[in-house]
Design a protein around this nucleic acid. Structure first.
Lengths: 158, 158
DNA sequence: TAATATGGACAACGAAGTTGTCTATATGGT
DNA sequence: ACCATATAGACAACTTCGTTGTCCATATTA
């Protein structure tokens, strides 16, 4: 039993969002300094969704929770920025496989490293024990694969 | 020292976002069942930003971290939905005060109640002690007022 | 009183999603 | 082998929601 009153319920979601933003903004800032200034916040996650072996626009759309057209546009953008390239699949003439370029792989690697660094900083600030508690709590509160980041859709219109 | 290896750094932000989405989706679902089906996810926060005494579009934009024009459009939408109304300020003929209608107040009250209910459910699932730890950790990791939810802008384009 | 600052409206634009439609290619049942 | 169906991708039109730029009315201040 805690003697102090519980905070209002709306604080928790705001804190969650704010903490998320803080991490992503920080990542974005650092990766911009490392030679990727034209990346948008969610691109790192798109790279993760593409993966090292490539995928197709349709599959990417499924993973990200958006339409295949939207995924196609994202791919087009990333292609113009030089992060991905499209090739044809010899086994299926319909498919066009999206793969990371060297620049894309570089970005993905840097992003992973910076995420680890950020986590290490949080661990130092909070204590590793406490941070694991936090992660564990989040896992229990919202179980499942958090990878479908279909935020645009749900943050957008009905 | 923990003997198990730390999870990859990118898991934490995904968990944060996922937990946030879970709460907001749940709120949205419940408040739709209580007579507010046309509310979009962030409208509850907009109501909070308007507050019980009303505000102006410019001030609302400042609070939400968007341009005054964007805030004005949001107000227009909410006005058409019957959640807010605009009146003139006798003390300043330039200002048009945005106030919640009865329907808006009802929605705000329900939203606050549901947020509290959701927090209570999380408290039951996790233990109040643990939940407070979690909230406290988030406060320490991302200190400051989390109310500026300028996600649209930062999730959008550069 | 004149210069500046502020609130609000209108227009044009951009980013990123959506649905709908079309073509090309695989796949599977008869 | 063939036709029906399913899938991948491209293109177009539209919506939503943000942006900047401009303009006017009203306060505020030098």
């Amino acid at each position: 039993m805690s003697s102090e009153p519980a905070p209002p319920g709306f604080e928790l979601p705001l804190r969650l969002l704010f903490a998320f933003r803080t991490i992503i903004d920080e990542l974005h800032e650092r990766i911009a300094r490392e030679g990727h200034p034209d990346l948008r916040p969610m691109h790192g996650f798109v790279f993760q969704a593409i993966g090292p072996y490539g995928t197709t626009a349709v599959e990417l759309g499924r993973r990200l929770g958006v339409s295949k057209q939207a995924a196609g546009k994202t791919v087009e953008n990333l292609e113009q920025l030089g992060y991905v390239e499209r090739g044809s699949d010899p086994a299926d003439a319909r498919r066009k496989v999206v793969r990371l370029t060297n620049r894309g792989v570089d970005c993905l690697a840097r992003s992973a490293r910076i995420f680890d660094e950020l986590r290490a900083e949080w661990s130092a600030a909070l204590g590793e024990e406490e941070l694991r508690h936090l992660e564990d709590g989040l896992r229990r509160l919202a179980p499942g694969d958090p990878f479908r980041l279909d935020t645009p859709r749900w943050f957008g219109s009905p």
